[in-house]
Design a binder for these strands. Structure first.
Lengths: 271, 271
DNA sequence: GTTTTTATGATTGACTCCAATCATATAAAG
DNA sequence: CTTTATATGATTGGAGTCAATCATAAAAAC
């Protein structure tokens, strides 16, 4: 293997063009994706650079969150390796985390829960992975969530059947509705795109159909929405505030009231 | 959090019961699955043991390939955590590729195909991704395959419903059998663990149940097996050679005959 | 109850990794 | 072409890691 840069003058300190630097760094990221972990010395070999340069490259890539630095080497960062895990790159991650933690407190051991698609629900899955609750049966139509929770000991994870849709991460359609009928949930945790004084909004009619079907099959239905979704109105109304569901949000009750959202007593759970 | 072992007598060398050792090691493996990477010192903290013991535990787990040791710590071994990667580490990849290419030639545009779980079928999915066939409807119970084919334009990819099993890569169980009944396939492509003069073998009874159900719902059923599977006999017989199915293999007809496998005319498709 | 086994923590010396600093040669800017 | 900026490799002291060894106390075996 011949190095595209450094054909001559090995072992001497020379500045190289930025494009070579960029190419090398992207090759470095790629190498780590492939090997998942590589010690620093091997990286130096493979890239044909000194330790110092390799370290500097790693520092840059780590700052960009493209890799994860470890003592003595580096590894590919989780969300980069798996397309599905890009859901981690969320807006308002701290709000979603708070909501997820609040939801975590709601869930009792040995219960059966449905988890909808979406970044907020993915955050919940992440919390459920890191702080497992005994004996849960978890049902989802989200592939990333299923993959995240599948390996956790003590969980029984089920996927609904159906067609892959919307960036290949969720299952929808008639088959999904059919398999839904085989279930009865203690809790259903749903996401949405917006909330206004009128109610909760989503933009895809088939998502609405699906979510309404989930509502019907759960003892308690919880919509998880961060404050950023306030005042967002999309094409279709999922439910109005008179419907029987809980809202879990980081928006304060005062803020909700200010926006004209009239909720029932106990309907809002603050995160 | 209080440690179940080491309630008293901290900091002194004491032998503990084997069950505590095992419990600690499995907790260690679990911790690494959750955090993906942890430095040794943190592991010592979390487990409440000395460096020496943590090192020893890691050495054992690494030997069992349950974790991967790194300098200064350890990380979860990929194939343990994530299904799709295991499928990439295949034995006899060139044989599987040849089989996949042969299968590719069989598939007609606008047909409906079922793809089973396994490395050979994963290789087929890879070929179908790189050389798309128009208007296919693809049904699978494999998460890695669904993820691979989902993004391909022009494919309608469906997942069966069911529980995640066998290290989180496939769906099985009653729900899977139920959703199967909603389908009728032009082709079904199945994997297996072995073939002998008696027939095709697999080791999991519920996989067999599932595969037999697939057989019933397809016009043509094809078992894809590379030559390495010859003479491998596991616990349960899937089908004998009198059954109505095609075998797609890189093993030559002469080799099959030599092993006493008596096939019907046109039953074997050579890759 | 006695003996054997072994899981553990402490210690140690060799080895490795790291951040900082410096000189240098080249790319980039003027 | 000249000047500036910077990407690189070498060096170094300090910190961290590792494998091996040893004493010990509790578990296992008898």
């Amino acid at each position: 293997m011949i190095d595209s840069n450094h054909i001559i003058a090995e072992g001497d300190a020379m500045k190289v063009a930025v494009k070579y630097v960029q190419a090398r760094r992207s090759r470095l990221a790629q190498l780590l994706q492939q090997h998942r972990f590589l010690p620093l010395t091997e990286l130096c070999d493979k890239l044909g650079v000194s330790e110092a340069t390799a370290r500097r490259d790693l520092a840059v890539l780590a700052q960009e969150h493209k890799i994860t630095r470890t003592y003595g080497g580096a590894m590919s960062s989780f969300d980069q390796t798996f397309s599905s895990f890009r859901e981690r790159q969320v807006r308002a991650p701290e709000a979603k985390k708070r909501i997820a933690l609040a939801v975590h407190d709601l869930i009792k051991p040995n219960s059966t829960c449905f988890l909808d698609v979406g970044t907020t629900l993915f955050a919940l899955a992440d919390v459920l992975r890191q702080k497992p609750i005994r004996g849960l049966t978890l049902v989802t139509n989200s592939l990333p969530i299923a993959e995240m929770l599948g390996p956790v000991r003590g969980y029984a994870v089920h996927l609904l059947g159906g067609q892959l849709f919307y960036r290949q991460s969720l299952l929808l359609g008639g088959v999904a509705l059919q398999t839904l009928k085989l279930w009865k949930f203690d809790h259903a945790f749903l996401g949405a795109e917006g909330m206004t004084a009128e109610g909760i909004w989503n933009s895809q009619p088939d998502v609405i159909d699906f979510q309404l079907a989930v509502f019907k099959r759960s003892t308690q239905s919880c919509v998880c929405l961060d404050a950023q979704k306030l005042d967002t109105q999309t094409d279709y109304l999922l439910v109005d505030w008179k419907a029987n569901f809980s809202l879990i949000t980081d928006a304060t009750p005062a803020l909700l009231e200010k926006r004209g959202i009239q909720t029932k007593k106990g309907q809002v759970i603050s995160a």
